[in-house]
Simulated assay, not measured.
Amino acid sequence: MAYARTEPADQEPDIRARPPLVRELLLVAGLFLAYKFGRRAANGHVEEAFRNAGDVWGLERALHLPGEGIVQDLLLHSQTLIHAANTYYATVHFPATALFLVWLYWRRPRHYVWSRRVLAVLTASALVLHLVFPLAPPRMLAVAGLVDTGQVYGPTVYGQTPATDSMANQFAAMPSLHVGWALVVALGLIAATRSRLRGLWLLHPALTLLVVVGTANHYWLDAIVAVGLLAVLLAVCGLPRFPRSGGEETVPGAAPAPAYAQEARGEARSRGVPAETGGAAASARGDGGAAAGPGAQAPAAVCGPWQPVRATGATAAPRDRTGVAR
């Protein structure tokens, strides 16, 4: 597993890693429009969407997955609760992801690059599935016996006639991008922050899962496929480095730094001097799983290459055990 290079969570953002703002705005807007028009292009496959819905419902029962109605019944005990779930479904998905990207762009530029790439590739992969496997959501499937909570209790983002809905493709249930995006947001914030409670960001995808199932907008399998796609994507693209509670980055399973190296870092920090700088530090840490040396970089795949450790044209001076040049 490769790890993407990101700036330490306890330091100021590396502005050199921040992409040009206008370019990013145009890129993100272009990706959003491509996604919206792509979903609309998948409209119209009504018969196929309902046939696939019957197959998914039967597969879930064969796998002994819990019925979606179990979650919906819990929500329907309170009109306030079901209204809150509908509101969460309709209003949190896009704004939360947008705020996540804006904050990363300003405060954690390297994390931003990783997150934007992962979100873009995940969305493109989902769009392909929407095109080749149109799927009616469980709220439309009569055999499921579920309530269309958005239409009954409100609010809803969908029209009453799914086949002619010009605002959204209602037959694009699999995979659930609500769940996929929420999980990317949670992982990105856990990697980019250093609070001891940062694991609580996982409540966002957990709550999103309960909402999309309880409102009958998605099947369990929609969420499972989204998580599976993201897992494959992370295996290809690599993970960011996750900081310890104190802010220092760590790679799961990696051996701790030697004592003399930790002492050297402590002395450097007490003098206000960064303990590691430039490509040499990245090579020493083994960023991105890349081999040390000029031109080393993390594996380049569909997510694009990470910034390489560039040669400076000068030979590094030999150093002693504390990292001081001799």
Rank of each mutant, 00 (worst) to 15 (best):
Y3R: 05
R5C: 14
P8C: 01
P8S: 00
Q11F: 12
E12L: 15
I15D: 11
P19Y: 12
L21V: 12
V22Y: 05
R23D: 14
A29I: 09
A29L: 14
L31E: 10
L31K: 06
L33C: 04
R39H: 11
R39Y: 09
A41I: 11
V46S: 05
E48T: 15
F50R: 02
R51I: 03
A53R: 02
A53Q: 02
G54L: 04
G58W: 06
G58L: 11
R61I: 01
A62H: 12
H64P: 01
P66F: 06
G67Y: 00
I70M: 08
S78D: 11
S78G: 05
Q79Y: 07
T80P: 05
N86Y: 01
N86G: 00
T87P: 06
Y89K: 07
H93T: 10
H93I: 04
P95L: 03
P95R: 04
A96R: 08
A98P: 00
A98H: 00
A98I: 10
F100I: 03
W106R: 10
V113Q: 05
W114C: 00
S115H: 03
S115A: 15
R116N: 05
R117H: 04
T123M: 08
A126S: 15
A126Q: 09
L127R: 03
L127A: 11
L129M: 11
V132H: 02
F133N: 05
A142S: 05
V143S: 09
G145W: 01
T149S: 13
G150L: 10
P155T: 04
T156N: 08
Q160A: 09
P162A: 07
T164H: 04
D165Y: 08
A168T: 08
V179L: 08
A182S: 12
A182T: 06
L187Y: 01
G188W: 08
L189P: 10
A191H: 09
A191E: 07
T193V: 12
R194C: 13
R198L: 09
P205V: 05
T208C: 12
L210D: 01
L210V: 04
N217C: 08
W220N: 03
W220G: 02
A223T: 11
A223G: 14
A223P: 14
V225H: 08
G228P: 14
G228W: 14
L229G: 09
L230F: 09
L230Y: 09
C237T: 04
R241K: 14
F242C: 02
G246C: 15
E248H: 14
E249L: 15
P252K: 05
G253D: 01
A255I: 01
A257M: 12
A257P: 12
P258G: 05
P258M: 04
G266D: 12
R269H: 06
R271P: 00
A275H: 15
A275C: 13
E276G: 13
E276V: 07
S283D: 14
S283A: 11
S283R: 13
A284G: 12
D287Y: 01
G289N: 06
G289Q: 10
A291C: 10
A292I: 13
P294K: 09
V302D: 00
P305S: 12
P308K: 04
V309W: 00
V309M: 13
A314C: 07
A316N: 05
A317P: 14
R319C: 06
A325C: 01
A325K: 02
